[in-house]
Design a protein around this nucleic acid. Structure first.
Lengths: 329, 329
DNA sequence: CTGAAAGCGCTTACAG
DNA sequence: CTGAAAGCGCTTACAG
């Protein structure tokens, strides 16, 4: 079962390959409607599937945008971001594919060499050698993990999220803030960025340094963190958690330790997981809308790709970061 | 900055293209070490990046395995499965890339035509036209969503999971079982398969039909479901939940309604989320290990791809489905 | 308006 | 052991 090529279509339709190519690619070289239809019909009849490889080889560019994904903890926000990314990339006329990076400390060149994308989006910081190789290969790249350094360009202003948590708690009357940082090294960059924001906001409000405790999603870890915050000498009355899951872990340990929420300790997370309105009391949190972030990131990539144009912002402008005040604060 | 090709390397190393190709592909061992080194050195010096497009065009097959992902709810299990899949596909010498299917009711041909993979794994059922087109294009495919019909081949025996939930509850002395089904249509196939298993097990144990209630991850939905089970006339004493999140929602509504767990109502979920040991009481659940499932699925694909060999089972054989008895049952 | 032909970068049967 | 050459399927400048 040999492959159907434009040659076959040309024969079937009684025209030249050139004409077939023009028709299939909608290149209007003044081809009469009759010929067009002939060609289209033949292509359909033969079940023609174009060869992406041949097209890529000839034209020097593929239709693919590759997104490199490091082994991040599973999170709603990440998945939604990837969905949005997929959508905006498609809007720009490309096909978005994702590849897992099993180990960010090892070269990723194997992957993108096999994919040969027209552009690359990475959610993990790449090795300098990879960045150089990418440049050499002429593949434009944007790094979504860079937002700590360049919050304005980044996917999301993580620092701003940290500050927003503190602003809310201060507004609720708290003056001594704790921060629940995840010990999972995978969360590394986001952790630090949000903590930075927390620190900055504390300073801006004239509060003492936040009391940072490390957390894992286990009872013991949550209890240890709670003990640190509730040491009388520190006087922490409110905790900003890295995310909702961390906040839920703390909430559970509060129940176990007889600490009342929000009276003894206020609590706020980030993500607005479905879970957050299931717990008792319902969790205050920050909801993230990553559609615009995805668009911004895609636009940064498109800007480096010749022959493409920027994506317009969506008409329904949504706040990408929204505070949701519920029962724990 | 023109692309570096094997021609350049040939020139640089003072040999022919043929020799360069042989060396780079580790073909033909007749080439003396000295020549090999010369070529390798030249390739490195020039920063050679092979053209996947050219290679694919010439050899007629790419190095890519494409995995099509429908818009499933975000779940730990799915993500882990994808990680494992990526790993086993790499083991087989291919690069695994994922693409999101925004809408499973629309053709997916655009995507795989652009990627032109050597094989395709789909987590969503494809349209018949797509299946036909794939066949026509000679791209082997396996459908991970088929496991309801062919549990033995599938990713995971979902029916078996349902039965396992009931077996456990019966062992704990329960005779009237409820099932919490997710209303999210995206969970559709899994829901039904697990429910089938629950039904079969109830029958096998000589119990009445399970009392099925639909659930969303909201308070109201969980409460409504709970009310259904606790109607005195039904006498449900234990609920098997589709997954841990559903179980947590029910647990929360039990607390709100003053229903004691496990005394008034026993509860078990599926997934072993980190969350499951944070709630009070800790959730009984079923932990899934999808490594073997991923391997089996990959092997099904490899079996259809000429020139590949099957992946050996990992040495450390793990139970892929493991019951974890904790506080709620 | 349409076609013959070159060439993208690679692999490989064939010849030397 | 090594090289010249054909050809994978497509696009596109060029000629008619």
């Amino acid at each position: 079962m040999a492959r159907v090529t434009i040659k076959d279509i040309a024969q079937e339709a009684g025209v030249s390959q050139t004409t077939v190519s023009f028709v299939l690619n909608d290149r209007d070289h003044g081809i009469p409607a009759r010929t067009r239809e002939l060609v289209m019909a033949a292509a359909r009849r033969l079940n023609y599937v174009p060869s992406a490889a041949a097209r890529a080889l000839r034209s020097g560019q593929s239709n693919l945008v590759l997104c490199l994904v490091p082994p991040l903890p599973v999170a709603q926000a990440t998945e939604e971001f990837k969905n949005h990314l997929s959508g905006v990339v498609a809007e720009a006329g490309f096909t978005c594919v994702f590849a897992r990076l099993p180990d960010p400390s090892r070269p990723s060149s194997d992957i993108w060499q096999h994919v040969q994308p027209a552009g690359l989006i990475t959610l993990a910081r790449l090795l300098p050698t990879d960045v150089a190789a990418l440049k050499q290969a002429g593949i434009p790249m944007v790094d979504a993990a860079q937002d700590r350094d360049r919050p304005q360009d980044g996917v999301l202003d993580q620092t701003g999220i940290g500050a927003m948590l503190v602003d809310h708690l201060v507004e609720r009357g708290h003056r001594r803030i704790g921060f629940a940082k995840l010990s999972d090294p995978l969360e590394g960059p986001f952790n630090e960025a949000r903590l930075d924001g927390v620190r900055q906001a504390c300073r801006a409000h004239g509060l003492p340094e936040p009391v940072v405790a490390e957390l894992a999603y286990t009872r013991a870890a949550a209890l240890a963190a709670l003990q640190r915050w509730t040491e009388a000498s520190l006087g922490v009355t409110a905790v900003a958690a890295f995310n909702d899951m961390a906040a839920v872990a703390i909430l559970a340990s509060c129940r176990a330790a007889g600490v009342r929420v929000p009276d003894d300790l206020a609590l706020i997370g980030v993500d607005d997981l479905p879970l957050s309105s299931l717990v008792e009391p319902e969790l205050s949190t920050i909801a993230l809308d990553l559609r615009e972030s995805a668009r911004r990131l895609a636009n940064r990539l498109l800007a480096q790709m010749p022959g493409t144009r920027q994506l317009a912002a969506s008409s329904d402008v949504v706040e990408s970061v929204r505070l949701i005040h519920r029962g724990t604060s």
